[in-house]
Design a protein around this nucleic acid. Sequence first.
DNA 1: ATAAAATGCTACGGAAAATGTAGCAAGGGA
DNA 2: TCCCTTGCTACATTTTCCGTAGCATTTTAT
Lengths: 122, 122
Amino acid sequence: MASRIPVPGGPVRGSRSGKPIMALFDLLGRSWALGVIWQLSGGPLTFRQLQESCEQVSPTVLNRRIKELTSSGLMERGDKGYRLTVAGAELFELLRPMGAWSKSWAHNLSCDEHGDRMRDRK
Amino acid sequence: MASRIPVPGGPVRGSRSGKPIMALFDLLGRSWALGVIWQLSGGPLTFRQLQESCEQVSPTVLNRRIKELTSSGLMERGDKGYRLTVAGAELFELLRPMGAWSKSWAHNLSCDEHGDRMRDRK
DNA sequence: ATAAAATGCTACGGAAAATGTAGCAAGGGA
DNA sequence: TCCCTTGCTACATTTTCCGTAGCATTTTAT
């Protein structure tokens, strides 16, 4: 059980540095952690709504992410469901531009792959 | 073996949406993916340097991340070692502010915990 | 009031990923 | 030649994730 929750200042999934950025990366480097924050940015969601909006992530994992993100002060439980805290909303603002960026990334990637196919063809 | 690499448009670790942001989150939501990008932002690093700067991450995982990040166009291999591509550098620019943010997050977190301890004491 | 549905969550077994250690082939340099 | 570095694979163990089932409690409908 246990499942260490990355806290800045403490050791982090094999890391002993405790550097805040590494603790943050460890926290966000788990399945659906970024997705949960992303989905909650639209407003509070219940457990099942959250699960649904995260492509039916298994309740086991969702519950774990909820505990981790809660105990690290990024989300909390209100009466309308789970929601981002102030800190969580701040972090989302840093994440937000990735939405647009990921689209052009996707576009360029598929172009490159197309290029590869064309090249392979010769 | 296999180990699916998240490509926007394709299914993503249990996800079928293929939304670019979800593909990106899946790619970054793996151990050390964010860390590798972060470390490479300082300039090219050899395999062993990278491993060292990532808290001695195991070569197995490092190699996997390298393949994933390479095939998704975020890093590449030059003659001075591994380095970020233009796209990778762009993504890092979006990540960069997290460095400062994580510090204040760490600060507030430890204050809150201190508050908890004080409250528990009564 | 009571049946039906939704909600938050735990249990469990199996698959996949991460860890840690060992070590090998290729390429210098002395 | 011997030695050292570099990039990487092998392998066994531990951890995490997934998918399904289901349970207790609260809410909604009748």
